[in-house]
Each structure stands twice: as C-alpha cells, then as structure tokens.
C-alpha cells in the first residue's frame, strides 16, 4: 500500500485512527517490522517508534504507559520501566539504550508511517 516514494524509505498506510486507543498506543506490522504508534489526544499529536524495548529485547513498548517528563513526551516499558523519549528515541533513565523513531502523518482518519 505504498503511496509516496522516497529514496530508501516508503510511507505506509498503517491503520486507522480508531485502531489506536486515545492517549495510548498499539502495535502495527509493516514490512515484517513491529512499529509502536502512540497519540496524545489533547494536542492530536502522534508518534511512531520501535515496538521492541532494547533492554531485554521484548516486543512490548506499544503496551507501555505514555506521558510527559517536563516537555518531553515519553513511553515507559511495562517490564522494567525504562522510559524513552517519543521525539528522538533516547532513553530518559538509562543512557545506554535508545529506540528508533519514525515519521508519522494522519490524513483522512488514516495513520501513515514512513519506514
């Protein structure tokens, strides 16, 4: 379901807006890759990151609780509560870890992610 071509990455239609719970996250499968999608309903702000937590390699980040630390939007891994910035993927409580983030767009109730 590719719509736009860029050099190495492609925009994919991931899911509908309703598939992701408000102020929460869910996981989508894109080209064999597990991507976590999150949103903050008040600002209609959306983020996409790896679903895998780098700490113990668990596919669970989409099930984590999201929130903010100061101005930084973040998600907490349900396993050992490592928290990651949703903007740049850096781990906020352990500098050894980081996750990949992906560009995301909403158009007409559809969520698009560039992978």
């Amino acid at each position: 379901m590719e719509i736009l071509q860029s050099t190495t990455t492609t925009w994919h239609q991931a899911c509908t807006v309703e598939d992701i719970p408000a102020d929460g996250g869910a996981c989508v499968l894109i080209k064999g890759r597990q991507i976590a999608i999150f949103n903050f309903s008040r600002r209609n702000e959306w983020f996409a990151t790896d679903n895998q937590c780098p700490h113990r390699h668990q596919m669970v980040l989409s099930r984590g609780i999201i929130g903010s630390q100061g101005q930084e939007p973040k998600v907490a891994c349900p396993f050992h509560k490592k928290t990651f910035s949703l903007r740049d993927g850096s781990c906020l409580n352990d500098e050894h870890y980081s996750i990949a983030t992906y560009p995301i767009e909403i158009r007409g109730g559809i969520v698009y992610v560039e992978v």
Binding site: A22, D23, G24, G25, M59, R63, I65, I66, F79
Partner: peptide, 21 residues
Amino acid sequence: KDRAVIQDSNDRYLANIQKGG
C-alpha cells in the same frame, strides 16, 4: 472510558505479563 490506557500492562490486559511478552 479513558481508563484502559492509564493502567499498568497487567491491568490493561487483565492478565500478568511474563518474560517474552
């Protein structure tokens, strides 16, 4: 209501998460 997403993973899925997810 909006309460599912505020629960820890165990409460959110009404089950206990274990190693491997």
